[in-house]
């Protein structure tokens, strides 16, 4: 059972890191478990052989301190590159779509700024538990909470960001594939936490615009 298919520009980056770490930890997993098993079988005292009188070996000890340290350092650098790319604030560009997700017990209120590009104006478009995003256009999702802490988690986007009351947060993403995904609340938020489910629809630009117009008309 492996990761669900990614659907944002972030996903391949995160997945690549995941695989790198899986290979490295997998190697050490088999190395150490293998040695453990081998030593127990090989040095099991059957005939009463005497153990070696050894207190250590400076050379070996330096190697097994330095080698993991170097590997971890490289992993940190690789992770930091992706992290900076995902999390550093980006300027708002004309093509960027903005959307606000306001979490509450136990629903996701979604709001688009409407044609004027400004929130808190009369042409805002609001929905509940339905987040639509156009494929291939960068999006800025502003995340807030009305009451307790929730967490905005769309597995296929590889994105998770807590929704904290009194502390607006934001994530940038760009959907790469049309589809329907689940928005799962990932931070315990009370008795209805388990059913705090939203849906994310990524679709081509025209369909998205059509959906926005229809949603506005139905308000």
């Amino acid at each position: 059972m492996l990761l669900p298919e990614g659907a944002s520009t972030i996903a391949p980056e995160v997945d690549r890191l995941f695989w790198i770490i899986l290979w490295i930890t997998g190697f050490f997993f088999f190395l150490v478990q293998g040695c453990l098993l081998l030593f127990v079988l090989k040095y099991h005292s059957r005939g009463g052989q005497k153990a070696a009188y050894v207190h250590g070996n400076a050379m070996v000890e330096v190697v097994w301190t330095v080698v993991p340290a170097v590997i971890l350092l490289l992993l940190t650098v690789a992770s930091q590159k992706v992290w900076a790319q995902i999390r550093s604030p980006r300027p708002i560009t004309p093509g960027m779509i903005q959307v606000e997700v306001l979490a509450e017990q136990f629903a996701w209120n979604v709001r688009y700024p409407g044609p004027d590009g400004q929130f808190d104006t009369s042409d805002d478009i609001t929905t509940i538990n339905q987040l639509h995003l156009p494929v291939g256009r960068p999006a800025l999702v502003r995340i807030r909470s009305k009451d307790v802490i929730h967490s905005f988690f769309v597995p296929q986007f590889r994105i998770k960001q807590d929704a904290v009351p009194g502390l607006p947060t934001q994530v940038w993403l760009e959907p790469t594939k049309a589809g329907e995904y689940e928005l799962r609340c990932a931070e315990l938020c009370g008795l209805g936490h388990y059913r705090m489910r939203g849906y994310v629809t990524t679709e081509p630009e025209e369909q998205f615009q059509k959906w926005l117009t229809e949603t506005k008309a139905n308000e």
Partner: peptide, 28 residues
């Protein structure tokens, strides 16, 4: 993240040292 990666180093040292203890022992 950096400090967390750092803490893995002494942890690794322990594991490897335990393996070193088993090596050429007379295990019961």
């Amino acid at each position: 993240m950096i400090s967390t990666m750092v803490v893995a180093v002494p942890t690794g040292v322990k594991v490897f040292s335990w393996l070193g203890t088993l090596w050429r022992g007379s295990i019961r």
